[in-house]
Design a protein around this nucleic acid. Structure first.
Length: 611
DNA sequence: GCGCCATGAGGTACG
DNA sequence: CTCATGGCGC
């Protein structure tokens, strides 16, 4: 039983309890991934379960990829469990069985850009001026309705207030347009699968029979549709293991509801709960700080973490005059750290901030002082114009009904589009979607439309675009069949690597938002811009639950740190060209008293904590 | 069909 | 301040 050897007692229990519904409350840095991997190993090697009857659902494709990699390593067998996100899983289900509820197998998946174009199209159809309502706001409202599983018909009864009532007129038109275009948006992938399961018992049973063990990670960030899906999927064997942490729920703004972790207990009264509370990542003082802050939340349980790690040096709070000096402080501090620890690599250091707009000042200073950095985030590969253009051609070939793609392509030039239509006609007539290889289609389309001629390879920006298309070609080679190719590109977020002008990426400081840092760890963490209005963000100050989410985000940030944590704020912040005086974040005043004392942060009575 | 300018908006972000 | 978008003129 050497599977269990390397696990602590809590972890072992969570692993060997295989059958029936169960909840694993896994604190930050408690070895959650390890437990999941070992659980799968245990199921296969000790209980003789066929790997393909195990389904693991992860939060992101990135997480799924990492999980798959680790399992491949551990299992050493060609047969592996299925690891997928809810969205990928649903897309696959709908390709196969969606036709049973009238969804053709060649549907396209609309991303945010396509959705927005659809909303605009609807608005112009309804003769609504874009000044009357921002299409983006309309889309957000529709999407939030979908997240709450309110369909277009019932939304008009549900709509409250002027704007929602206004949107309730657009919502059905939007839905109609998706059907007409044979398109599903991301929310639809979940919703239509639910509909399939409720209307077509055969499909439901097919999947229920094939899933003997279901494991779902990051359950605190599931939405209602995902909650229901998980219930459906484990419906036959009821071997469902959900893993999550209330204190790390940071996506309620897009429909996630941490209460799903509790709801589960009501729906599965015989479920068992396990806790992973030993932390292997951070020093005790970092854990104390994290706990001290998160304890101010009252709407969810909090797991108290402990560690055998050393106490650690006291964490620092630093006040800078402005954003530039804040950045300089980071560089100075890293420099000092490296003097006392020559093994400390720049890749051990991350700077976390609340919003992307904060990265600019940091970049400016880093660039100026020649400090290598790696910026995480920004425009994603598949969202880039040139990539999206080329994909739209292919998408229209697969699904000629897609008017949004058609409109996009028409804008690239009438003659170009006429040439393409010629190709399209022949393509459809001979049903080439089945037989022709993706890469050949792609090359023929580029040839036919002379799309590449739009760009001048002597222009560096254009050259980058041409490179991206090259990159797309290599993906096309990987997926010779058109539909799987399109599915991959719409579901699998590819990280776009901005031109590596900053040299060795392994020796660079990472800059990213707190959201992007979820699941990661670094020896040294800088939590910057800890000011009221930035963190917590000004738009969160109106509701207690929003401030609590900000606090969880702060908790996530603190718990990313292994050895050193630096928290900084400025006296004067320039944001969007507007300079203003800042107040230290309320979260600073929630740190343990001794930390504040050492850092000379005294509570001045003028509480920013007005909620 | 492209480029210029005015306008406006500016949280976080997975699929 | 900066970026994206849309309208309009050439």
């Amino acid at each position: 039983m050497d599977i269990l050897n390397k696990l602590n007692k809590e972890q072992q229990e969570a692993v060997v309890n295989t059958d029936g519904p169960m909840i694993i409350l896994a604190g930050a840095g408690s070895g959650k991934t390890r437990v999941l991997i070992h659980k799968v190993l245990y199921l296969i090697q000790e209980k003789g379960i066929d790997p393909t009857e195990i389904l693991m659902v992860t939060f992101s494709n990135k997480a799924a990829g990492e999980m798959r990699e680790r399992m491949e390593l551990a299992l050493d067998s060609p047969s592996l469990p299925i690891v997928s996100t809810f969205h990928s899983l649903c897309a696959r289900i709908l390709r196969r069985h969606g036709v049973n509820i009238g969804i053709p197998h060649n549907f396209v998946i609309y991303d945010t850009q396509d959705q927005l174009a659809t909303v605009k199209e609807c608005m112009s159809l309804l003769d609504i001026d874009q000044k009357q309502a921002r299409p983006k706001a309309v889309l957000e409202t529709i999407s939030s309705a979908k997240n709450q599983m309110i369909d277009a018909k019932t939304y008009s009864e549900f709509a409250k207030g002027y704007f929602q009532e206004f949107v309730s007129n657009i919502y059905p038109v939007y839905e109609g347009m998706l059907v007409e275009n044979n398109a599903l948006d991301f929310d639809d992938l979940l919703l239509k699968t639910l509909r399939l399961f409720s209307e077509d018992k055969n499909s439901l049973e097919f999947y229920q029979n094939s899933i003997k063990y279901l494991l779902i990670d990051e359950y605190q960030d599931t939405n209602s549709a995902q909650y229901l899906l998980s219930k459906y999927l484990c419906g036959k064997y009821k071997n469902i293991c959900i893993v999550g942490d209330f204190a790390q729920s940071i996506y309620s703004f897009r429909g996630a509801d941490f209460r799903n972790l509790e709801r589960f207990k009501k729906d599965f009264p015989d479920s068992k709960t396990f806790q992973l509370s030993q932390n292997y990542r951070s020093t005790q003082s970092i854990l104390n700080a994290a706990h001290s802050v998160i304890s101010n939340n009252s709407t969810h349980p909090i797991l108290k973490l402990w560690t055998e790690n050393a106490a650690g040096s006291d964490l620092r709070i630093h006040e800078a005059n402005d954003g530039h000096q804040e950045a300089e402080y980071i560089i100075q501090t890293v420099h000092t750290l490296q003097k006392s620890d020559p093994l400390l690599n720049l890749s051990d250091v991350a700077v976390l901030y609340r919003m992307n707009a904060q990265s600019r000042t940091l970049e400016e200073v880093f660039l100026h002082l020649g400090v290598p950095y790696k910026l995480v985030g920004g425009v994603r590969f598949y969202d880039r114009k040139e990539v999206k253009d080329v994909l739209s051609y292919l998408s229209l070939l697969s699904n000629p009904k897609d008017k949004i793609a058609r409109a996009r392509l028409e804008k690239l030039g009438k003659r170009r589009f006429a040439n393409f239509e010629e190709y399209l006609e022949n393509f459809t007539k001979n049903n080439l979607a089945e037989s022709k290889k993706t890469i050949d289609i792609l090359d023929e389309v580029l040839e036919k439309t002379k799309y590449l001629e739009k760009y001048d390879e002597n222009d560096s920006e254009d050259l980058a675009r041409l490179e991206n298309i090259k990159e797309l070609r290599s993906v096309a080679i990987e997926f010779p069949q058109l539909i799987p190719f399109l599915e991959n590109v719409s579901l699998v977020e590819a990280e776009y690597l901005p031109d590596q002008k900053k040299g060795d990426p392994n020796n660079a400081i990472t800059l990213m938002t707190l959201h992007a840092a979820k699941g990661l760890e670094f020896k040294v963490i800088f939590l910057v811009g800890m000011e009221e209005g930035i963190f917590p963000h000004s738009q969160s100050l109106f509701s207690i639950s929003d401030v609590e989410e900000e606090r969880r985000l702060c908790y996530v940030g603190i718990t990313r740190a292994k050895d050193h944590l630096y928290i900084t704020y400025v006296k004067e912040r320039t944001l969007f060209g507007q300079r203003s005086n800042s107040t230290p974040s309320r979260f600073i005043f929630e740190l343990p008293e001794d930390v504040r004392e050492i850092n000379n942060i005294t509570y001045d009575g003028g509480s920013p904590n007005f909620l």
